[in-house]
Design a binder for these strands. Structure first.
Lengths: 339, 339
DNA sequence: TGGTTACCGGAAAGCCCTTGCCCGCCTGCT
DNA sequence: AGCAGGCGGGCAAGGGCTTTCCGGTAACCA
């Protein structure tokens, strides 16, 4: 790999001059030299050593992003928003998948701090785990004190700014819709218990129930892991435990789609016999049959806003919180309760 | 941000000793010192400056990945495989989205080279563009000469190793299947003309036609851009131009799903009146109605294999090529041609 | 013509870390 | 008691780049 010194030598100038030309420093340089240097750069295919550069400049340019799993459409969509804004600002994004492992999340925070990222964006639900939360908050605070910026998506606590979708309201909307359509025995396919997203959505559902003098008994809640297949399995379990269910509310679209598949395989008509709802409004939600009634979260926008918060140092270290609304999307998978 | 010097000072040792303790160098160090240093690290929340470290060590550890768009399920799946292997090897992955812009792809190669990535993985179709191809090959060769490793997924030319799905065979399988079911007037929804993936799949389709003494006239080929909505639009155009079509072969699943949606909106029965096929076997393919007949590519595995090639320096700079088979997946969206 | 100013280029001091080399000191042997 | 041999620790030389500061030249003014 060519170095700056080599370029300088070839162009017959000092490294200082070469550096100034290459980086377009404000310091004026004669045209003749500029051309010689640029020619040398071209011939040697010189690219500045980014590490040496950021060491010398003490500047941080990359942005670290920690998500649960990029290949999950939920995070893919958030990431799209993040990337768009980052690219507009000429920032490189380093994406890390925690695969919902709190320990790995902590490791990645360290790793990204070591890489001198200018900002850290954590996307995805927090965990119900005191120790973890404390450890994470600690690390993030240290990072912020070191001049880093932090933005989180979809979790409450912690240092830094936050973009928070109204999961509780989303759950409420689903509940309200199902009760309004006369459903009474509603099964719920929840996500992992450990995730705050799961509890928030459940809380909304419970509030809707309570307002109508109903409850959500534990036997009608099956915990799965946000994947399609776990959703199918949970639906089977719910139905086996209580064949009289008239609706199944899944706490994300993937699991709802799994439930749909299971119901189809059992010959159950949706929404004739059982209504099904999802959550998130993934692009596929409109393409399954019946099209999924669900709750929309503006995922890409949430990503974009988080990145904007992170990049825009104003209010630096502040604890700005941007709430994002949830919106009911009515399609075909939820109908009136059968009589 | 704490530096090694500060840690050393606090522990009352030289930076050299601190470094050795922190990195677990083979050089033996007294237990007492070790504890003092580790305590200092803890108190100062010290994390080694990754850039300084890699500058000093002259080692490259991160891996650069360039894809068209991570939030596209096709690439999300490939990325999952890439990440898995990278993580197993303790490598950090830097993902860049080219959004199918050749110029941006070139820029990213430079950027990643500047970041001293140990290897570069390019995923996604190549382009029919001589100048671009030459430029890219040039840059990749320079990179390899500088000791970098290159692996590409789904494109032929260039330096480095390659994992190549048999797109041509996939197209052939689709064609063979449709002809076998008696279809004659087959419309094709192709991807961007510029992409080699499009041409490869089309070539397969054409070969199937030719073997049966048929052809694929240009008017029955609509070019779209691999997205669902463009697929719907292309289906509309095909049908309007030639209402008698009995089958539509989309060159990826997203476009097939768009076509499905369009046909449903027009009240056309699939597969009763028109058969539809996809390509790639995305997870959603089995959840739409009717479930999509398509061609499976083992995307995650392709990613994993490419990363393995990239990491495994043996045969360094070699031009190893791993072919990956395509496999027909029969579901419900393709039936016999109506009489 | 002498002196001032402006301007351009280079020398060198870091940025933070790793590591080869050297140097004391203690141990153990003779 | 004297010496070899380890062992544990520090010194200092980079690794590639930026940037401050300084010096030399040329242009300009009086």
């Amino acid at each position: 790999m060519a170095t700056l010194a080599e370029v300088a030598k070839r162009a017959g100038v000092s490294p200082a001059t070469a550096s100034r030309i290459i980086n377009g420093s404000p310091k004026p340089v004669t045209e003749a030299l500029r051309e010689r240097v640029l020619a040398a750069v071209e011939e040697l295919q010189y690219v500045p050593h980014a590490h040496a550069q950021s060491l010398a400049r003490a500047n941080r340019s990359a942005i670290g992003v920690i998500v649960h799993d990029v290949s999950d459409p939920y995070f893919a969509e958030i990431t799209r928003g993040l990337q768009r804004v980052a690219t507009e600002h000429g920032r490189l994004v380093i994406i890390c998948n925690s695969y919902r492992d709190p320990a790995r999340e902590l490791e990645y925070v360290e790793l990204l701090r070591a890489h001198q990222v200018a900002a850290l964006v954590l996307a995805g639900s927090g965990y119900h785990d005191e120790d973890f939360t404390r450890a994470l908050t600690g690390k993030l605070q240290v990072y912020e004190q070191g001049g880093g910026r932090v933005a989180v998506i979809g979790r409450h606590q912690h240092a830094g700014d936050a973009v928070v979708p109204d999961n509780e309201m989303g759950g409420y909307l689903i509940g309200a819709e199902l009760y309004a359509r006369g459903h009474d025995r509603i099964g719920v396919i929840a996500g992992p218990k450990l995730l705050t997203t799961t509890t928030d959505r459940l809380t909304g559902l419970r509030r809707a129930a309570r307002e109508r003098g109903r409850t959500l008994p534990a036997r009608r809640i099956a915990y799965a892991d946000f994947t399609r297949d776990s959703g199918a399995a949970a639906a089977a379990a719910l139905l086996d435990a209580e064949p009289g269910l008239t609706a199944i509310a899944a706490l994300n679209d993937s699991m709802a789609i799994g439930a749909l598949a299971l119901l189809r395989s059992r010959g159950v008509d949706v929404p004739g016999q059982v209504s099904v709802t999802g959550f998130d409004d993934m692009p596929v939600a409109r393409d399954v049959t019946p099209a999924l009634t669900t709750v929309r979260l503006p995922l890409a926008e949430m990503g974009a806003r988080a990145m904007t918060l992170a990049l825009d140092g104003v209010g630096g270290g502040g604890n700005r919180i941007e709430e994002v609304g949830a919106e009911l999307v009515l399609r075909d998978s939820a109908g009136p309760a059968p009589r």
